[in-house]
């Protein structure tokens, strides 16, 4: 469904090149929910932008449905971390959700229905005529998710969407992501730096190394499908998985530090 093969991204310019992503290969099956974790600064956002078709990789390729991604694909939506900057403050919530549907040339009745349904699906009622800045951060991110859902994508990318909301809201939104994923049957790639969140949400966790990034490790999350903030997080298996991933990330960081030290010693 979503394939990333040999992806490499080097930022160049001014005689200095930075290899953000070295060699990434992984695959998401249709309807899968996978989480991507990695140490901070490991090129997660670069990777996500390449998958979304916002950034051209230096080499390697991304394909959706076997079709190579050259620009933003038609059946993909992205939820950005910066909800406050991704929603348009000059439009009401309803207009924000509806605009991509207009661009998709859907008829009015269908648009209205999708807007109402998707806002209801994220637990928002009676906010259609409010402006995004009149809502709390958590509610704004719900609007951004509703906008993505209304677009009826087959693939949904989420780039650390809950990094800027408080803990309680975050737990609610995590459950929301699980429930809409189950209900809409979309393929979901969720990028986070939070190991707990990755284990709690994902069916699979892809662990990235430190920059220059490769896939360090993959873990299948064999937790029950129905997840619960309290019960799931207190399972012994949850703790094991978390420890395993934590160790991997720790190793990744240590390896990159050792590399850097070695390089500095040589230089």
């Amino acid at each position: 469904m979503l394939e990333v093969r040999g992806l490499r991204k080097v930022y160049g310019g001014h005689g200095r090149t930075v290899e953000a992503v070295r060699d990434l290969t992984f695959e998401l099956k249709a309807g899968e929910l996978a989480c991507l974790v990695g140490p901070s600064g490991c090129g997660k956002t670069t990777l996500l932008k390449c998958i979304a078709g916002l950034l051209a990789p230096t080499s390697g390729e991304v394909s959706v449905h076997g079709q190579r991604v050259a620009g933003p694909p038609a059946d993909m939506a992205v939820v950005f971390q910066e909800y406050g900057r991704s929603l348009y403050p000059w439009m009401t919530v309803g207009a924000n959700v509806e605009l991509p549907l207009k661009e998709k040339r859907l008829v009015r009745a269908r648009r209205r229905q999708l807007v109402t349904d998707s806002l209801a699906a994220v637990g928002l009622h009676d906010v259609e005529n409010a402006y995004p800045w009149q809502l709390s951060g958590g509610m704004q991110q719900r609007v951004a998710i509703a906008r993505a859902l209304a677009y009826e994508p087959q693939v949904l990318l989420m780039d650390e969407p809950f990094a800027a909301v408080d803990a309680q809201t975050r737990a609610d939104l995590e459950d929301l992501v699980r429930s809409v994923w189950q209900r809409f049957g979309i393929t979901l790639l969720f990028v986070t730096h939070d190991i707990d969140e990755a284990v709690y949400l994902g069916e699979r966790v892809i662990v990235l190394s430190a920059s220059p990034t490769v896939v360090q490790h993959q873990v299948t999350v064999d937790l029950p499908t129905e997840r619960d903030q309290l019960a799931t997080r207190s399972l012994a298996r949850f703790a094991e998985l978390r420890a395993e991933i934590y160790q991997q990330i720790h190793q990744a960081k240590a390896a990159s530090t050792a590399d850097r030290l070695a390089a500095e010693a040589l230089a």
Partner: peptide, 16 residues
């Protein structure tokens, strides 16, 4: 730039 990226993701026409 996030507003522009959002517009690109949803494949807005140049006019929009």
């Amino acid at each position: 730039p996030v507003q522009l990226d959002t517009a690109r993701c949803y494949r807005f026409s140049r006019r929009a």
